[in-house]
Design a protein around this nucleic acid. Sequence first.
DNA 1: TAAAAAATTTAGATTAACCTAAAAATTGGT
DNA 2: ACCAATTTTTAGGTTAATCTAAATTTTTTA
Lengths: 218, 218
Amino acid sequence: MNLSFTEENYLKNIFHLNFNVDENVSTNALAEVLNTKAASVTDMLKKLSEKELVNYEKYQGVTLTKIGEEQAITVIRKHRLWEVFLVEKLNFKWDEVHDIAEELEHINSEKLINRLDEFLNFPKTDPHGDPIPDKNGVLKSQELIPVSKLKVGDKGLISGVREHSAEFLKYLDKTGLILGESLNIIEIINFDGSVMLLIKGKQQMISREVANNLLIAT
Amino acid sequence: MNLSFTEENYLKNIFHLNFNVDENVSTNALAEVLNTKAASVTDMLKKLSEKELVNYEKYQGVTLTKIGEEQAITVIRKHRLWEVFLVEKLNFKWDEVHDIAEELEHINSEKLINRLDEFLNFPKTDPHGDPIPDKNGVLKSQELIPVSKLKVGDKGLISGVREHSAEFLKYLDKTGLILGESLNIIEIINFDGSVMLLIKGKQQMISREVANNLLIAT
DNA sequence: TAAAAAATTTAGATTAACCTAAAAATTGGT
DNA sequence: ACCAATTTTTAGGTTAATCTAAATTTTTTA
Ligand SMILES: [Mn+2]
Ligand SMILES: [Mn+2]
Ligand SMILES: [Mn+2]
Ligand SMILES: [Mn+2]
């Protein structure tokens, strides 16, 4: 299977969109995340369908075939392992690695990626808490829930983010909301959904927006 | 300067061809190393000339401009640093790294490559003995000479190769002719130019072909 | 120094990945 | 159940990087 850079990006994004909302992925949704136009997406879906990488019926959206999904997961594995490398070995911050990993994820060598995995000690998650598929394409995701779903008195460990923008990640860094910290819910303000946390022995307020995008393992 | 994968390969190969034989690089020579056709090369040279990356006159071959050379050297720096990474950190053998580095050399991030350089402890040469340009694009190459230029009684340190094929590199590995070994010239056979070496206390015969492609620092 | 040979360029196509504008299908509100 | 809004597809380009075949220029050789 020799896929182009572009084809790999289509498969990866179909996977992510389907993962988030479990239904056929729409042409427009893909055009949006791929920064392209719906007409271009239609063209590419026909081509991917021809190659049996996606199930596509006109006007019905698209899903990945078994093979398409395997390819998508391989790309995601590469993306996340490179992110770990950049953070752990090259001292990048978690908000700096995504764009570089977008390029590195297309490097084509199974041996390379498996050696990298080994070099990094077979990490289970990437710097954003996202699970890393193993070499057989098995992706086991721990069930994480947003802080906004917790009740007063609940506690948990910061374990992931829903939103991956550098903006948001830098905000979390600055306010000490980093992966691995444990927190308690002190109070939930009805008025605007903001939440008072106890973290590192100090009280700290976060907005509903932030509470929605910060993921906890309980 | 945002160059395509293809443009970078043209610049890099013009640099290498010009480095080896110091004259304008011919269309056919480029077509050969780039695995393409002369007509395609002509098209691209016009485009690179338009962008002021090469000096090109119809029928006269091509050289790099200052800017073109800087770009070429950046690509070469990336290629060689990645090769060091693959050998030193991921335990690849020196005959396995070139093709992967051909892909990695196009990853676009100055920060990444400088961090990698640091992570590797600012290596001076790659696994094949080729010099690595520094972050300012300064490439200082030690003068190496092929074994075939030595006389009986001369000695030296194996320090590089002229030919980079996996075939040749594996042969050198197998016969113990690896970088860093010192050798003495015991005898030169007039008939076929083959050379008897003393290496690691043992005598060993190599063909003229091998002697031509194995480089020594004296 | 004029052919012949070799190298190079031009002309005219092709392919992948895009685009805009217009047409067709689906969906959702009444 | 219809119509209007929305979504998606089709039609007809474009651009970068290729190609083959033919034309042109340079180089070599006799
Ligand atoms: Mn990422
Ligand atoms: Mn990530
Ligand atoms: Mn190489
Ligand atoms: Mn090398």
